[in-house]
Design a protein around this nucleic acid. Structure first.
Length: 431
RNA sequence: GCGGUAUUGGUGAAGUGGUUAACACACCGGUUUGUGGAUCCGGCACGCAUGGGUUCGAUUCCCAUAUACCGCCCCA
């Protein structure tokens, strides 16, 4: 094997790509119903676009960015997620201007890149679908976004969703909580895992995410961020909960759910699902939340906030597969044209072309194979009908028309097929 | 970035330091000089991820590299 695909990449082959279309089309249609329109931004951006949005010290920037210098010595990075590019485009195209609807709602679908160690469902090139809505602080928009995500999964046929929400409050709430958390954890410093010791220094909220069982014991008794929300932050969260209840969307509050970045505030949420595909327990298939400051960071107005989510498509399709959800496969073949003898090649090609011209699918043999082998191909491609054309038919100006379902055969004039194939098709399909 | 397991044909896989690398599925051909899903028969790895090394001899042992998978880190 001379060449192999780059580490952490995958070929999506015919047979699988139909499932991708299904998921993507479902997203396009549904998001359209919510009046989110597709935005397509470059797969690569200036390195700074992502470094800016993620913070210079985060692992994403230092470790996971797929970056390089181009021939003009520009520092380029392949996009590791969708939000930064969308925000950049929002600001660069001045979509906050008065002529645009507010909130400005957009979705994206496409490949993302992270230079990390591949594992199942984690690749260096992977795909996400996500949405962003800018320019409204309304809790109703938070809930619309959550509702859209849950409806997306339900439309795909998934059940047993679990919606977890939390609030990080505003900047003041976060600062108060951060200090409280440090005060709580500091006395236990020596008992924490090495990883969490470091987290405590760099990003205390991350300790809440630790997988270490000992850490988790401390986390259980840690103060809750919800007790540190300012009055207005509290009001926002209360309204979100009320609206979710109104929409009959079941949710639970996870006080330990956090985000690493400072830009997140108020509502954050994850949608989880229990599936064999990812071992036991619930796995997150969608993460999202509200953020502020990003637009300003990119040079836009200071007061424009955003809310959105991202969904990893590889994981989602793994999930749909393991849940046995029916997804469309390659479309069936209407007609297979069997040609017998070299002399028929011209006519069989004209036939398939004519049938395709009428909007039906048609195929023929290209390997000079015998009739039996051609019938096998027709069978494998699930052809509804087979037309057989040999010297006899050619002389008579006819074709043998066989239904692969009933096995019934009929002789049809070539001229009739060229004139009105749909009529012949309908007539025989009825039987 | 760290640790572990694995790598045999189109696929699933068995196998051994020594002459022809099981078996099954798929595919191709024949049985039927022009008709599918069945039966039977035949074909299908000069090769065991790649590169070195040990050995009289390696797919089998050792080392390196690549890739996949699992765990950690991280996951905006």
């Amino acid at each position: 094997m001379r060449y192999q695909r780059p580490k952490g990449t995958a070929d999506i082959l015919p047979g699988q790509s139909e499932a991708w279309h299904f998921v993507e089309e479902t997203a396009r249609l549904l998001f359209g119903d919510y009046r989110y329109n597709e935005i397509r931004t470059p797969l690569f951006e200036s390195f700074d676009v992502f470094a800016r949005s993620a913070g210079d010290t985060s692992d994403v920037v230092t470790k996971e960015m797929y970056d390089f210098h181009d021939k003009g010595d520009r520092h380029i990075a392949l996009r590791p997620e969708g939000t930064a590019g969308v925000v950049r485009a929002y600001v660069e195209n001045k979509l906050y201007g008065p002529e645009f609807a507010k909130p400005y709602k957009a979705f994206y679908i496409g490949p993302m890149f992270r230079y990390e160690r591949p594992q199942s469902g984690r690749q260096r090139q992977f795909h996400q679908v996500g949405v962003e809505a800018f320019g409204s602080d309304s809790p109703a928009l938070d809930v619309e976004v959550i509702a859209m995500a849950t409806q997306f999964f339900e439309t795909l046929g998934l059940t047993g969703l679990r919606v977890a929400i939390n609030s990080l409050g505003d900047a003041e709430s976060r600062e108060n909580y951060r200090q409280a958390l440090i005060d709580y954890l500091k006395p236990h410093y020596d008992e924490l895992s090495d990883d969490s010791k470091e987290r405590l220094e760099k990003n205390p909220l991350r300790v809440l995410d630790s997988k270490d069982p000992k850490d988790q014991q401390f986390v259980e008794d840690a103060p809750s961020i919800l007790d540190y929300l300012t009055e207005s932050a509290q009001a926002h969260f209360t309204e979100v909960k009320a609206l979710l209840t109104e929409l009959k969307i079941d949710f639970e509050i996870d006080e330990t759910m956090v985000r690493g970045l400072d830009y997140y505030n108020h509502t954050i949420f994850e949608i989880m699902i229990e599936s064999e595909a990812f071992g036991k327990g619930y796995t997150t298939v969608c993460g999202g939340g509200r953020y502020s400051g990003l637009v300003k960071e990119f040079g836009g107005p200071a007061d424009v906030s955003g809310v959105g989510f991202g969904i990893g498509l590889e994981r989602l399709i793994l999930l749909l597969d393991s849940e046995g959800i029916e997804m469309p496969t390659a479309n069936d073949l209407d007609v297979y044209v069997v040609g017998i003898g070299d002399e028929t090649s011209h006519e069989t090609l004209k036939l398939v072309q004519a049938i395709r011209g009428f909007g039906f699918s048609a195929d023929r043999d290209f390997l000079d194979r015998k009739p039996k082998a051609q019938f096998k191909s027709a069978d494998r491609e699930k052809a509804s009908f087979v037309m057989t054309l040999g010297q006899n038919e050619l002389d008579a100006g006819t074709v043998n028309f066989k239904s692969m379902v009933t096995g019934k055969e009929d002789t049809i004039k070539l001229s009739d097929i060229y004139e009105d194939f749909p009529q012949i098709y309908d007539q025989h399909f009825e039987e």
